[in-house]
């Protein structure tokens, strides 16, 4: 690689560092990415993302919390970590599919996420709850 090209690549890296935070702020606003992650220079600008995940399952019309053990527990934790970092870019559907695969008696999976943020006006912690319900027959129908 010639010296001139090398220096242009260097300049491109500098330009990337210059403009990336604009895109980063957009992604944080649009998809609720963790502002502390992904090199957006926003660490300590505001509290980092804090997302709590609760998984419930429905069997024969009754809803119970998922008793995730072993590998399934790790999958739920991994989903929570990814959701915390990547926000809405992480779909709940793959986790629901894994739960259906692991237990054929489950009819529906309900994944509840609660994002805790510091409200700028009141400076109090507030929770934003979202619920995602996945029916086994819907996912099976979409596969076929």
């Amino acid at each position: 690689m010639s010296g001139s090209i090398r220096r242009r690549v260097m300049l491109a890296i500098v330009v990337f560092v210059l403009v990336w935070p604009i895109a980063h702020a957009g992604l944080v606003a649009r998809y609720q990415l963790d502002p502390w992650e992904f090199f957006g220079w926003s660490m300590y600008a505001l509290p980092g993302a804090r997302v709590q995940v609760l998984v419930e399952v429905e069997r024969d019309g009754e809803i119970h919390p998922l008793r995730a053990m072993g590998e399934m527990r790790q999958r739920v934790q991994r989903f929570a970590r990814r959701r915390n970092a990547l926000g809405l870019l992480v779909s709940t559907e793959p986790l629901a599919r894994e739960i259906f695969t692991a237990d054929s008696t489950i009819d529906a999976v309900i994944i509840v996420t609660r994002e805790i943020t510091l409200d700028r006006e009141t400076t109090r912690l507030v929770g934003h709850r979202a619920q995602h319900r996945h029916e086994r027959h819907d996912l099976e129908a979409s596969d076929s």
Binding site: P21, A25, P35, G40, W41, S42, M43, Y44, A45, L46, P47, L118, R120, T123
Partner: peptide
């Protein structure tokens, strides 16, 4: 880092 502190608005009143 300074711009983001202003943009997100948690530093003007010392909230963060």
């Amino acid at each position: 880092a300074g711009v983001m502190k202003l943009y997100y608005g948690y530093w003007l009143g010392g909230e963060f």
